[in-house]
């Protein structure tokens, strides 16, 4: 695995390499290098199986982190290629021509995070949400509890019975401060 990373880092700008497990490695690269790196891994290094594409919202750094996980079925190890993209104008090169199923992942990311993948097929169709008219729900600036309370007729929660303070009220009423914690 280290040989592979050394070999790749001669060509691409790799950073934050984490050898998570003997058969699993993280590596971060730039946005421009990501797709060519994945293409090389697929075509030359035997990573023929695409596992998943996911996204993390780093709202404090104003970044989205995309993670492409690839699997090498003959050597039996995985590599995760991460790249950071700008959060305000979230867009990434589409990789649907490498593996067909990436188009579906990209549809999901478009719907859940609002990341554009120009050229990806059926990108703007509904994936899970039908008729969503708010900001994409998986972005961290979306307040899901507030949205739920405004939309879904919340039932009044029953008064909470924290076991510790409740038992204190029953067993040691003289030490109890008169409230049951939420």
């Amino acid at each position: 695995m280290k040989n592979l990373i050394n070999k790749l880092s001669k060509v691409y700008e790799l950073s934050d390499v984490v050898y998570q497990r003997p058969n699993f490695t993280y590596a971060t690269t730039t946005k421009e290098n990501t797709i060519s790196l994945i293409t090389q891994l697929r075509d030359l290094e035997g990573f023929s199986h695409f596992v998943l594409l996911s996204c993390v919202d780093w709202i404090e750094d104003n970044l989205f982190q995309l993670t492409y996980i690839l699997n090498n079925p003959t050597q039996k190890y995985d590599i995760a290629i991460r790249c950071m993209i700008d959060r305000n104008e979230a867009a990434m090169t589409s990789a649907h021509y490498l593996w067909e199923q990436i188009a579906t992942y990209q549809r999901e990311l478009k719907e859940m995070y609002g990341i554009e993948f120009p050229g990806s097929p059926r990108l703007n169709e509904n994936f899970i949400l039908e008729g969503w008219d708010n900001i994409p729900p998986m972005r961290r600036d979306f307040d899901t509890k507030k949205y739920s309370e405004e939309t879904f007729f919340p039932r009044e929660r029953p008064s909470s019975n924290d076991p510790a303070t409740y038992m204190k009220s029953r067993l040691h009423p003289d030490e109890w401060d008169g409230k049951i914690a939420e």
Binding site: T144, S148, E149, F152, F153, P154, R155, R157
Partner: peptide, 19 residues
């Protein structure tokens, strides 16, 4: 179905079925 259960704050699941 009664009050949303563990998904009470989800953006995508209803809270009260009887509505």
């Amino acid at each position: 179905t009664i009050n949303g259960g563990m998904y009470y704050d989800s953006y995508n699941t209803i809270n009260r079925l009887d509505h």
